[in-house]
């Protein structure tokens, strides 16, 4: 942690200068670093020339209004959607060489839960990098998949058809699948969307355990009221990068207004933001 603090401060200052940092600035150990990432669905870019560095041993979040490119940023970083330009580094290497170290939790609504599979089938998909295309699933790995279900409180559901789960349970299964990947960097897309309070609590507990185990967590999040409670590093985006840094330095009225424009009421802003100058 001690070595991280000065680095993130340096990057924050660089951002305020408006200087575009090149690949030479990529910290060798940053779990996730994006350089000049641009994504476009049509003529108008959804994400434009974004630089971002997500530090180790921390819980990071990507926030911004609807349509600001939060999920797009995450998906483009992973190569799930094509990027127009830009580079992605995971622990200092190009992402293609580091896929073993990444776990990904897509949005729950992005898949068809009527698919003929049990909870265990889905969790075992997270073991793919361990078994490969044709490898045998050993008893040891099956046990590990069961352990992962246990960690999210779903141990008794392994034979349940996934369509018979509640939204919160489905989200836990997705998290268990990510745990089965046994990664160093966990990327989550809206993990709290449409889940019950107990599930939200369970998920955040698991994520905090990951962090204390030395893993890095990056989550797209839309509930501003819980940012301060859950996360310690924040990246604010509205097509372009608005700000990034620790929650205390970044979550200011100025930055929130720049990110959300007129969409947040002034009173709401005052409640969320750190008192000016405290950062």
């Amino acid at each position: 942690m001690e070595t991280q603090a000065p680095r993130s401060r340096r990057l924050t200052i660089a951002a305020e200068d408006g200087r575009v940092s090149g690949p030479e600035d990529v910290p060798s150990d940053a779990p996730l670093a994006l350089r000049g990432l641009t994504v476009s669905y049509s003529e108008k870019p959804a994400v434009f020339s974004v630089d971002a560095t997500f530090p180790a041993n921390s819980m990071s979040t990507i926030i911004g209004p609807n349509g600001a490119g939060k999920s797009t940023l995450l998906k483009a970083a992973l190569g799930v959607i094509p990027r127009l330009s830009g580079e992605v580094f995971v622990f200092g290497s190009p992402i293609e060489n580091a896929r073993n170290r990444i776990a990904y939790v897509p949005q729950r609504a992005s898949v068809d839960w009527d698919f003929p599979a049990t909870v265990m089938d889905v969790v075992q998909m997270g073991l793919y990098r361990k078994v490969g295309l044709l490898g045998r699933l050993s008893g040891q790995l099956t046990t590990r998949a069961q352990d992962c279900l246990d960690r999210v409180g779903m141990a008794d559901f392994s034979h349940r058809q996934i369509g018979q789960l509640s939204g919160g349970q489905q989200q836990r299964v997705f998290l268990a699948r990510a745990l089965a990947q046994d990664a160093d960097l966990y990327l989550l897309d809206e993990p709290f969307a449409g889940v019950d309070a107990a599930t939200e609590r369970a998920i955040i507990d698991v994520l905090k355990l990951l962090k204390s185990g030395g893993k890095a967590v990056v989550a797209v999040h839309h509930d501003l009221s819980t940012v301060r409670e859950y996360f310690d590093h924040v990246f604010m985006i509205n097509v372009r990068r608005i700000a990034e840094g620790t929650v205390n330095t970044c979550l200011t009225t100025k930055n929130l207004q720049a990110t959300y424009g007129g969409r947040l009421a002034a009173a709401h802003l005052a409640q969320l933001a750190v008192v000016e100058g405290a950062g």
Binding site: L78, G79, E96, R99, I102, Y104, D121, Y128, R129, L187
Partner: peptide
């Protein structure tokens, strides 16, 4: 495995390198 994972969850499959 490719068929199963990519049919259920295309994005996840891509993130795995499938």
């Amino acid at each position: 495995r490719w068929l199963k994972i990519a049919t259920f969850d295309e994005g996840f499959a891509q993130a795995l390198g499938i």
